[in-house]
Simulated scan of single mutants.
Amino acid sequence: MELFYSSQISNQIALLDEQESRHCIKVLRHRQNDELNFTDGNGNIYSGKLSKADLRQCEITIQNIQQEEQRNFELHIAIAPTKAMERFEWFLEKAAELGVEEITPLICRHSERKHLNMERCEKILISGMKQSNRSRKPKLNEMTPFNKMMNHTADVKAIAHCSSGDKKSISEIMQASSLLLLIGPEGDFSEEEIKLATDASFIPLTLGDKRLRTETAAVHAASITYFLKN
């Protein structure tokens, strides 16, 4: 199913932005009165007719709305963006495809990237959502200092790190209906950050006996989490 995205929906009319409009007309060669499907990123899938075929702004007349069933589990990944931006963008794409509910970019002591182009990140999330025919776009928060995450709430809070010590596996914490998972930068979390998190009731977590890249660890954790929940 071809799936477009619109954030401008009012009075049974949806507008596609210029990028979506050009893709619709130039690439997919849709014409006026063609039937299209699109989502608002909030769990709704709309169907309708292309009432105005314009390269700058297409209009769709809505004929039907279906709401995607919401999971009974929410995963929030707080992750330190990688120095190589393409690797973090790969994570965003896969997180959207897997259906991660919320993402917070972290600023940690060992972070090598402390600024993001949020507009570009949102576009990648939209692309990943459409690619997997999902109707829910992950919520992307602003860059957040590590210590600010200590006040966030979830049924279970966990921190995946490479330091030694007793740790639980993902399967041991899956009784929760919501999970906040911290994934550190390429230099891992500092010992001070690990202590701060454990003092704030974050559970030390292992993702296996191999050292994973930041973005790989996040996708690996999300995949296991949803597999166990489903």
Rank of each mutant, 00 (worst) to 15 (best):
R31M: 07
N33S: 14
D34S: 11
D34R: 12
N37G: 14
N37H: 14
T39P: 03
N44M: 01
Y46G: 02
L50D: 03
L55A: 05
L55F: 05
C58I: 03
I62P: 15
I62R: 10
I62V: 12
Q63N: 14
Q67I: 08
Q70D: 14
F73W: 10
A78Y: 00
I79R: 01
A80G: 04
A80F: 09
K83I: 00
M85P: 00
E86G: 00
K94A: 03
K94R: 07
L98W: 10
E101Y: 11
E102Q: 13
P105M: 06
I107C: 04
I107W: 15
R109V: 13
H110N: 15
K114A: 02
K114G: 01
H115K: 11
L116V: 09
N117S: 05
C121A: 05
I124C: 02
S127F: 10
G128K: 10
G128C: 03
K130C: 08
K130A: 08
S132T: 06
R134Q: 05
K139Y: 08
M143V: 07
F146V: 04
K148S: 14
K148H: 14
N151I: 04
V156E: 14
V156L: 10
A158I: 04
A158C: 04
I159N: 06
I159K: 05
G165A: 00
G165N: 09
G165W: 01
K167Q: 06
K168F: 08
I170N: 09
E172T: 07
I173E: 03
